[in-house]
Write a protein that binds this DNA or RNA. Structure first.
Lengths: 133, 133
DNA sequence: CTGCAAATTAAAGTCAACTTGAGGTCAAGG
DNA sequence: CCTTGACCTCAAGTTGACTTTAATTTGCAG
């Protein structure tokens, strides 16, 4: 079984060695063992790091990510909680879509004040995040 | 013209007073003036705060949000940069979708190790974020 | 065997985005 | 008029996620 040392994991995952040590310290990943002092990682860590990177990009904290996929890649949470998270993600996707549309609107609409443009306001209201204005 | 004091803005926007002061300090929002010591906010600040909240949920820093919608709600960036941001958002939406599907898979797939499940790996590869594994 | 690039640790530093605390001000209702 | 609750400022503290630094140690190519 092929083990990787931290430098190689860093290079192939794009995650800095210091970050990898930190992830291990907080229990987000595990090293397969040591060769002398040096951590050796199993190859599955690369896939885990993809997941972690993805989760981070999605705005989850490392704690939350740890809860979704345990440090061995297995979920800590029961099914329904995982589905609840997926539902939350769907909501977030909808919000992002609103923001994206708002941005496109702002880029293209010639109105002087977007905050007063009916189309723009409608876009925001569609996101249902608009406070009672 | 109806002005709101900070407590009311906080209540209606869901943003803490301390955060509102901070936002003003960094120039993300502006108060319409003062009544004695007290900041008075114009009602448009509520819509701006919706945008800010939305942007934050999308993982943008306050600096980035400030660049998208200036403190008066007008964009600081030229059109093409706004479109570039919208494109980036679209990419992020795709990533979130991958993560969401991965989560649903994990919730439902009975395989012992998801990291080895072909379906799961395919999902991740579809996100094209997977390191060379 | 030697030398050195690459690893190790622990502790401190950094950055964003706020929050908290102490001490002070003020406008409005009773 | 007086109290009180909502506001003010400024400085320091907090949290998350790392990075940096300094002082070692070590695996392995030559």
């Amino acid at each position: 079984m092929k083990l990787l040392d931290i430098g190689e994991v860093a290079e192939r995952s794009g995650v800095a060695p210091s970050a990898l040590r930190y992830y291990e310290e907080i229990g987000l990943i595990t090293s397969a063992g040591r060769k002398g002092l040096r951590r050796q990682f199993g190859p599955e860590v690369l896939l885990q790091l993809s997941l972690i990177t993805l989760g981070k990009a999605a705005g989850f904290s490392l704690q939350e990510i740890a809860g979704m996929f345990g440090k061995d890649g297995q979920p800590d949470l029961p099914r329904d909680q995982l589905h609840a998270r997926a539902d939350a993600l769907e909501a977030q996707i909808r919000e992002l879509t609103v923001l994206k549309d708002a941005l496109r609107h702002v880029a293209d609409c010639p109105a002087p004040s977007h905050l007063e443009c009916p189309k723009f306001r409608k876009l925001l209201r569609a996101g249902s995040i608009t406070a009672e204005v």
